[in-house]
């Protein structure tokens, strides 16, 4: 474990908690894509299949449970909470994410580290996390609503990606044979898509602020 990865995990967790608290506090999820949040929950559920079989460290096991619980809590809030679910942009959040899930699964069947049940699902979760932001990006382009996507959320999400890339560079130079190419390449694609999301986020933010000022 290095400080970059620890900080990356913390900023990732904080971004999820910021979103959960924002939805719970305002009892609104306007502008938030349920499909992206479902994909994130699926990412954690398929990546942490080794929760009960491989013990890496207490930190690792605790964080897996926290990520699964917090991502499911957001999905539950948006689907079941009587007040929150009313504000969901159902007719705008129409990205057909099932095709993305299928494409990632096929890719995982072809490209993985070992052809075992857990490894195929691990690769699937890595690919899926890279593209999970797409429904949110599409919804943001359509709705331009950044009310619930706070600046802090975007900031911590960006910090998570940046710190993980530094972590990979650090591990590449300090550990012999650090070769998690699937995670690194997919992570770079994910970061590029996040950069696109951040671009549209700030455009929407500026547009919203301008309208507010007029």
């Amino acid at each position: 474990m290095n400080i970059f990865r620890f900080a990356g995990d913390m900023t990732h967790l904080i971004s999820i908690l910021i979103l959960l608290l924002k939805i719970y506090a305002t009892k609104s999820c306007a502008g938030i894509s349920l499909k992206t949040q479902e994909l994130y929950a699926l990412v954690f559920l398929t990546r942490y299949l080794d929760l009960f079989t491989d013990y890496v460290s207490l930190y690792n096991s605790v964080m897996k449970i926290v990520f699964i619980a917090s991502s499911l809590a957001i999905v539950w809030c948006m689907r079941r909470h009587p007040l929150v679910r009313r504000s969901y942009d159902k007719d705008l959040d129409t990205f057909r994410h099932q095709y993305v899930v299928l494409a990632c699964f096929v890719l995982a069947l072809v490209l993985h580290e070992r052809f075992t049940f857990q490894e195929v699902f691990w690769a699937f979760s890595i690919y899926l996390e890279a593209v999970a932001i797409l429904p949110q990006l599409v919804l943001l382009q359509r709705s331009g609503n950044v009310d619930n996507l706070t600046g802090q959320y975007v900031l911590f999400l960006g910090a998570y990606r940046g710190l993980y890339i530094i972590n990979w560079i650090y591990r590449y130079f300090t550990e012999d044979h650090f070769a998690r190419w699937i995670a690194c390449v997919s992570g770079l694609i994910q970061t590029a898509l996040y950069a696109d999301f951040f671009y549209y986020y700030y455009l929407s933010r500026i547009k919203q602020d301008t309208i507010m000022r007029l």
């Binding site: 474990m1 990546r47 491989d54 897996k64 070992r114 998690r180």
Partner: peptide
Amino acid sequence: PLQQRPHDEL
């Protein structure tokens, strides 16, 4: 071989 190690990254 090396890849037998469990994934240590979250």
